[in-house]
Design a protein around this nucleic acid. Structure first.
Length: 620
RNA sequence: GCCAAUGUAGCUCAGCCUGGCUAGAGCAUCCGCCUUGUAAGCGGAAGGUCAUGGGUUCAGAUCCCAUCAUUGGCUCCA
């Protein structure tokens, strides 16, 4: 028996004339229209019997359960086979199948008639499948989906919680009382449970603070960054890059598009569902990179590496990486189709060296997040590995978990399906209980060979390195999302939302009480600027109250109102946003206070006009 | 990608159910007045292809269909 199974929005068919003598008798051949159903086109073949009918129906039921559909139309369709059963047998098997599908709303179209039909098939990956069922063989199912998607659904994994002491507990038995966010992550990942029904607060904030917005003239998930957003993003980019270089990363730049027919890509591509942007150019099928892997591997393929050079680290900050995520998945700065990703690969000579190296990078990632303003308590860790790798590297895995200091979510794969044997990630859990990965690292045991990257070992023989794939911060946009979500949470709890001072587009605002203090303000502004502080002047003809309010709305930490009193004093009167009250400090103490908060962080000058009267209103 | 909700001025929203005067408000913008002491000073003007495209109707922001976008859920996230 051969079956072509289609999940349809609708089907409409009209029996036109009897095709064979023994065709089924029907009263009034008229058009039938059915909606929201599965249509099974069926060819019943020589040798099919009741057992085949049973098997077929049970397989159809299984897949219908998966896609959540209850209505089935059996549609006799001779053209699927060249070895058809006799019509009488076929008709009885068809009717048997109909009677077996007891828990479904089932019907069949008339047997032996020529029919015209119109069918609208749904667009999801499981919508179309074909099955071949024979009497003696085990049923052979052939889902027409990409190889990678097919593999993904068959992957077997065990979900556990590992405590810092190395003990593993089943998720169901673990006491999550003190680990609410871990519980959210565990349920999110293993049971795919969600709770929320409101938009994430960072979406409104990114617009109000003039950071970023959707660009309707581009594709969904491709954002535009306003001056404030560009400033924040560039500071984070610079900070992460500096830290990776300090660790030993060699910064490179590689193309953003590649030829999908290049031999190294063809095999890599089988690992991925088709989620990339494609561009056809002069007969080449190019695609936009979804990570920096390609560029770095192709580059490393050209290097002459000795075991003495390893571990060797290549780093690129991709602006951009592109993933054509499903449209329903895109949200604000959390999930994008074009994003900036620091990507650092370490080529290691063997697993022991890779395991040592991954620990160094774990510390780096933890520290980078901390310095960006994301505390250990803001994220939960997940670690995934194959059962074999766990058995051989139990102590090292426990070392890594111990570094996190709290229980972590574990996914253990029965066998290796991906190109890596271990992967860990930090998941930021936001106010609404959504988890998204920030830092991550992987131990890749396949791509060294796939990209023909090799090094010469102590015995003068050629080996493929083990490759680590680390993003110490995760996507830069996602860091901004996390910072804004944290600020929104503070706001909900009655605290004043704030960005870390080194990321604030304006750090100090000066407000002259009257126009005749403008000159004094400008010279003060210049003096403070020289100390690498972003300071601007609100010289608009607005009331003091109004200008204070606007500065507060921009989350500016320090406000200096300048009038007679200040002009005649050596000290500065400073309004501190966190307390809302006034303080008097000397110039030097004030600068000192700012520099303590911004030390070891990159600095860039104001990215808007110094004078508010010269700024267009960008708050969207 | 699937299901649902939403889409009206630069922004936030009212009007839509029950079709019918010139589509309203606040904020922002512009002009004028005020010359300011720590979260919104006063007055006036300008600003709209009611997401886009079709349809029904004497008449569509309003009803119907399709498309696009955003948000939520599902799926996905190597």
């Amino acid at each position: 028996m051969r079956i072509l199974q289609l999940h349809c929005d609708s089907i409409e068919y009209t029996p036109t004339k009897k095709e064979i003598q023994s065709a089924e008798n029907i009263e009034n051949p008229s058009t039938v229209k059915l909606e929201e159903l599965v249509v099974a086109f069926i060819a019943i073949e020589e040798g099919d019997d009741s057992s085949v009918a049973k098997n077929a129906i049970s397989q159809i039921q299984n897949s219908m359960e998966k896609i959540g559909c209850k209505k089935l139309l059996l549609y006799p369709y001779a053209h699927l086979s060249a070895n058809l059963a006799r019509p009488t047998t076929a008709m009885s098997i068809l009717k048997e199948m109909e009677s077996l599908a007891t828990n479904l709303d089932v019907s069949h179209s008339p047997f032996g008639w020529t029919k015209s039909y119109n069918v609208k098939v749904k667009g999801h990956p499981l919508a179309e499948s074909s099955k071949v069922i024979t009497k003696d063989s085990e049923s052979k199912t052939n889902e027409i989906t990409s190889e990678a998607l097919k593999g993904e659904s068959t992957i077997r994994s065990y979900w556990k919680i590992m405590s810092p002491d190395g003990t593993m507990t089943n998720i169901g038995d673990f006491d999550f009382k003190n680990y609410k966010k871990l519980e959210i992550l565990a349920k999110y990942e293993s049971a795919k449970q969600r709770q929320v029904d409101e938009p994430p607060p960072h979406v409104a904030l990114m617009k109000k603070l003039g950071i970023a917005d959707y660009e309707p003239a581009s594709d969904s998930g491709n954002m535009r960054f306003f001056p404030n957003g560009r400033l924040i993003k560039s500071l984070i980019e610079r900070y992460v890059t500096e830290r990776v270089k300090e660790y030993g990363g060699n910064e490179v730049e590689t193309p953003i598009m590649y030829d999908s027919e290049h031999p190294s890509m063809v095999s890599y591509f089988n690992r991925f569902p088709a989620r990339q942007y494609n561009i056809d150019s002069e007969g080449k099928k190019l695609f936009l990179r979804f990570a920096a892997c390609f560029g770095q591997f192709l580059m490393a393929n050209h290097f002459q590496l000795s075991h003495k050079n390893l571990p060797y680290r290549l780093y690129e900050l991709t602006r951009y990486s592109f993933r054509r995520e499903q449209s329903g998945e895109l949200v604000g700065l959390r999930r994008l189709r074009a994003f900036t990703m620091p990507d650092c690969h370490a080529f290691c000579k063997d697993i022991p060296q890779a395991v040592d190296e991954i620990k160094v990078r774990f510390d780096l990632s933890q520290s980078v997040l901390q310095e960006l303003g994301i505390e250990t308590s803001d994220y939960e860790m997940a670690i995934r590995f194959t059962e074999d790798f766990y058995n051989e590297n139990k102590n090292s895995i426990e070392d890594i978990v111990r570094k996190h200091g709290r229980p972590v979510l574990v996914e253990m794969w029965k066998e290796k399906f991906f190109y890596f044997v271990l992967k860990w990630e930090f998941n930021f859990v936001d106010n609404l209980g959504k988890a998204s990965a920030l830092s991550t690292d992987q131990i890749d045991v396949e791509n060294g060979k796939r990209y023909d990257i090799s090094y010469i070992d102590e015995n003068n023989s050629e080996k493929n390195p083990i490759i680590l794939h680390n993003s110490p911060s995760g996507a830069i946009e996602r860091i901004i999302y996390a910072l804004l979500e944290k600020a929104a949470k503070d706001s909900q709890e009655g605290k004043k939302p704030q960005l870390p001072l080194w990321l604030a587009p304006t750090q100090v605002r000066i407000i002259p009480i009257k126009e005749n203090f403008n000159e004094h303000c400008i010279s003060l502004q210049k003096k403070i600027s020289l100390e690498n502080v972003r300071v601007d002047v609100d010289d608009r003809n607005e009331s003091i109250g109004k200008r204070i309010r606007d500065a507060e709305k921009e989350w500016i930490q320090y406000i200096l109102v300048i009038g007679d009193k200040e002009v005649n004093s050596t000290n500065l009167s400073i309004r501190d946003r966190q307390t809302g009250s006034m303080r008097e400090l000397s110039f030097d103490d004030f600068i000192q206070e700012i520099q303590t908060q911004t030390q070891n962080k990159p600095f860039t000058s104001l990215n808007q006009s110094t004078f508010l009267s010269k700024r267009p209103n960008l708050m969207v």
